[in-house]
Design a protein around this nucleic acid. Sequence first.
RNA 1: GGAGAAAUGGCAGAGUGGUCGAUUGCGGCGGUCUUGAAAACCGUUGUCCGGGCGACUGGACCGGGGGUUCGAAUCCCUCUUUCUCCGCCA
Length: 424
Amino acid sequence: MLTINFLREHPAAVIERLKIKNFDATQIVAHVLDLDRRRRELQSEGDAIQAELNNLSREIGSMMKDGRKEEAEDAKKGIGKLKERQKQLSDAFDAASGEMQNEIIRLPNIPHPRVAPGKSAEDNVVVRGGGRIPELYPGAVPHWDLIKKYDIIDFELGIKITGAGFPVYKGKGAKLQRALINFFLDEGEKGGYREIEPPIVVNEDSGFGTGQLPDKEGQMYHVGIDNLYMIPTAEVPITNIYRDVILEAADLPIRNMGYTPCFRREAGSWGAHVRGLNRLHQFDKVEIVQIAHPERSYDSLEEMVNHVESLLKKLDLPYRIVRLCGGDMSFTSAMTYDFEVYSAAQQRWLEVSSTSNFESFQANRLKCRFREKGAKQTTLCHTLNGSALALPRIVASLLENNQTPEGIRIPEALIPYTGFELIS
RNA sequence: GGAGAAAUGGCAGAGUGGUCGAUUGCGGCGGUCUUGAAAACCGUUGUCCGGGCGACUGGACCGGGGGUUCGAAUCCCUCUUUCUCCGCCA
């Protein structure tokens, strides 16, 4: 959520820069500024009346104390009218601020100046890449065949127990999950991240804080009886640790990470593209989150990008890093890098991480602020997060790229975690 | 799940209808003293929204929401959370 102060001070710039996201903000901004003006007028008038009422009450108080009963009764006479007017004003104020809030919430985050314009993924900028795309042997097959062949992931069983998109990992398949999770967490710890094990259902306030609510409730599983949401990513609970918190500048940046299962309804997105592990309702992910000083948040972003890249290097996967263009970026992001690994049998790039700087967009919803040492006023923090990493597509590409006639080779770095070198 | 008690500033903890944004202690910050530090003493110390170039100034906030009243931290309703006891239990 953009701050009203920023909108008030730079309306033209907001409109201009949101064009990069293909968003025409002209009407909303005009409407917001209008409501803001109205809201302030109403508040001034309402405050004046409240001040008058407060004074009257105080006077009546001292009259009663002195036993001047009649005088007090006299003073009460004008109050009804004032209160009536006050009620009108406060209703109008509530309406104006509520509407203003609803309008502001519709504005996406402003992209960083370095974000390229563009309509879709085609316009994303490949920043760099690494690894080697393997030559597969003639009998090579996609991962959905491999998992059956070696009986390591079972979709049918998942359908029986739960439904489509809830795979059951078995034997070495299950152990591979655990190995990857531990590997990612250990690497994160080396990178300075504190491990968090958060709840995997959250309340409405948390959903609002990170921007899932009110817009994207269709994406989340909702536990109706308790009004809780199953998290689509650990970003939600881990970032919400800092909701309504005022930090010291010296504490920044704060680095946290957590492994959680993630739940996504993915309504209406099933089809040929999303076969096998490419898209699931439940999957495992290690997420890294930073709370940063606004002047240094892009250093944090770079640090996070380098961290994610190091994971892909260690897993020996062919990857590329793309900076998303305006049209492909999420509503809440100011700058996003996607990481893709090449899945050799499917012959496509699969997104395995999205690492973003949200600047103050989430922090404003969260009311996550910091104070410079000795300063009186608070400033919004910047929040960032990134997958490090999401498992299913890593597994898909790992299985496909490393298949041999003898079985699937486990990357060197992972062997200490799996305890086996080959899935056969 | 049942019964009872409670929720106040960073923390502890007063305050049961009238000048209370709130006594006090601790902590924090600044100062005096000291070569320096500690102790002692003095001062200061919340968040948010308005108005003003500014000095400054109006308003809101005592778990959330609603109500009674000229006036609510204080009374009433409701929700949430915590604690104690009972029940159940990884």
